[in-house]
Design a protein around this nucleic acid. Sequence first.
DNA 1: TACGTCACGGTTGAC
DNA 2: GTGTCAACCGTGACG
Length: 239
Amino acid sequence: MKSKLYVPGVGQAGVNQLGGVFVNGRPLPDHVRQQIVELALLGIRPCDISRKLLVSHGCVSKILTRFYETGSIRPGSINGGSGRHSKKTYNTRIEINKCHQNVGISPSSHKSIDNKELSPTRNYRSFPTSPNHLPSNSYSTSRYFSFHHHNPFLFQHRPSPSVPTNPPSDEIDESDYDDNSSILSIETKPKPSSSLIKHSIENILSNKVTIKNKRPLSLSSNSSHDEQTTNKRQKFIAC
DNA sequence: TACGTCACGGTTGAC
DNA sequence: GTGTCAACCGTGACG
């Protein structure tokens, strides 16, 4: 059973079965969420991610599912958003749904793309375009999926910093990439430096990363699971 | 063993 | 200023 303790200003904190500290009702820290997604993209199995990050596997599954569906690693609306849809955001959702019907993207896949992702404070860095050129409407979301479709390599691990990765499109602002940092980033907090992200992942994976770098999307020891994982990623990228 | 799903208790913020 | 409500959170159990 998890032990609970009250932390002033934070809420009811607890320790899960894996020994990880969490706050009930509050989303995981963004850097943890980002690590979950990045580890999954590196080919780490969800169960391993769960153990390494001390997050329940249900949470890992939920975050990854959301990420594959929406491309967003952020919590839906609690942090920095509203826990309840305002009329304004609801109307915005209607608009985005209409737009996605036009572009062939299922609205249901954007159940979490509201509030924050549609708000003016949206994390533009999550999208591979210049913030100055990204409209705060559904176009950005459509562009996001278009970006994934045309730039699947960006969701593959890039082990060697020395290998230049030229954006295939001149629409992409190079400043958004920050050398080796992932396109995934944090909205509400100061963006962690790329070195921090890289450092954290390397710390977590230690030498495991170097092994998996050779085959980032497949593990030879578990072919059936790899197929599922790869299919899921391909499905996500294909979106 | 790994994974998806669900109920539960809790937090948050609009109304 | 306060209470209600709905959406969302992560955990843990289940299959």
